[in-house]
Design a protein around this nucleic acid. Structure first.
Lengths: 220, 220
DNA sequence: ACTCCTTTTCTACATCTGTAGAAGCGGCAT
DNA sequence: ATGCCGCTTCTACAGATGTAGAAAAGGAGT
């Protein structure tokens, strides 16, 4: 049985994905979930409570996905991939496929998440619930450590930030002209290529060609 | 003299940065700009018009910055840097400094922009106004072409997406624990390092180690 | 049947929001 | 002065929204 809480928060996610945070109202959620008017308001008396539940639901769904090993597809590799550490290309392929999934089936959740992250800017308590990709972050760090990155923690954070950026730009339809349409092997390949480049870059130890920290300047 | 339009749209940007799109109401803009109630409503009769003006203002401000050569600072290099093509580290340093500026002085604009990009998801007309980083995109492509990237257009798009991601994560305070505080040389150095890694990765021609497009699978 | 409790549904209401039109005001040509 | 015109300010109003409490429905135990 699906709890009423799940019904409400799922409808809320869909709403936010479709209309943005502004569309998230008690009554709109009721309508969207085909529940009698007032239901959402009864379950979450304040709007703040509703948003927090929404964010919590996002976190829960992610946790569930991660636990389930995700991606039982015929066409794409599993995620998370085994962390052999050296097989960066395999990881890249799997990550590309995962990203492409976020663009298709997971589109609503991805959009809602970005909206919530932005919201967390002015509501710090949301950040704690969202954890802000803590799982991905941990995983990325472990992966880069295994791959022998110089500063795995730092590199891991850069990695998830960049991957988030790739996803966000695709979601927003930024490079709609150049990027292949989501859900296609081309899309997965393109994303995988970008991720692969990232991985190779971040696991390369700094050479004389790499950037040296700028000299510190005393300021007024 | 500052036109009233600028006063209004600037206030709108600040509002969106502070409270999100939801905080953007005619009356709130009036209050924020210390204008008599009803002014914003008179200038932009509908909310849609107000948002479009806001987005237009963002685009104009960016254009102005770009034209002015931006960054007349004592401490940080100029942007855009000269496109020598080969001096990737110089470009990385300049870009890192620019990003750090977006995190400090440009914070409001950056936040407002992301909110608008998200908004453009359900309001396509906004995308045309925003141009969605067209300038950066063009520049990135040119730069990567000059640096001898294999597929400069593709790589350029990946580059701006990743850089956007770095900025977004910092804005959202994602890696607040690991990332150095904005406005410091450390912050600039960290960002420059990440950008540098990206640049080096994206200009490297694909080797046997790089990802090969996945084999196509016929699907039901 | 009756009571007690939780869950669900409905209703009320003060406030906010979008939008439009009216009123006020300053200048400028006649 | 008079009338006209654009800009500015004020006001009205229908509808949406957040929030809370009342009413109804359902079920478990006696």
């Amino acid at each position: 049985m699906v709890t009423r809480y799940a019904v409400i928060t799922d409808a809320a996610i869909a709403l936010v994905a479709e209309q943005g945070m502004r569309g998230l109202t008690h009554r709109a959620v009721d309508a969207r979930a085909a529940l009698p008017t007032g239901t959402t308001s009864a379950y979450y008396r304040t709007r703040k409570a509703l948003i927090e539940a929404l964010v919590q639901r996002l976190a829960d769904l992610d946790a569930a996905d991660l636990a389930a090993g995700s991606l039982p597809s015929d066409d794409v590799p599993a995620y998370p991939p085994k962390l052999t550490g050296a097989d960066l290309d395999g990881i890249a392929a799997a990550t590309g496929a995962l990203l492409d999934r976020w663009l298709t089936e997971g589109r609503d959740r991805a959009l809602a998440r970005y909206a919530c992250v932005l919201e967390a800017t002015h509501h710090p308590e949301l950040r704690d619930i969202l954890g802000h990709g803590a799982a991905s972050r941990v995983q990325a760090r472990a992966m880069l450590a295994a791959a022998g990155a110089a500063d795995p923690d730092r590199a891991g954070d850069h990695f998830v930030a960049c991957v988030d950026g790739l996803l966000f730009d695709r979601l927003a339809g930024a490079g709609a002209l150049t990027a292949p349409p989501p859900g296609t092997p081309e899309s997965r390949a393109d994303l995988a290529a970008a991720v692969g480049a990232l991985l190779h870059a971040l696991t390369t130890r700094p050479s004389r060609n790499q950037h040296k920290p700028e000299r510190r300047v005393t300021r007024g």
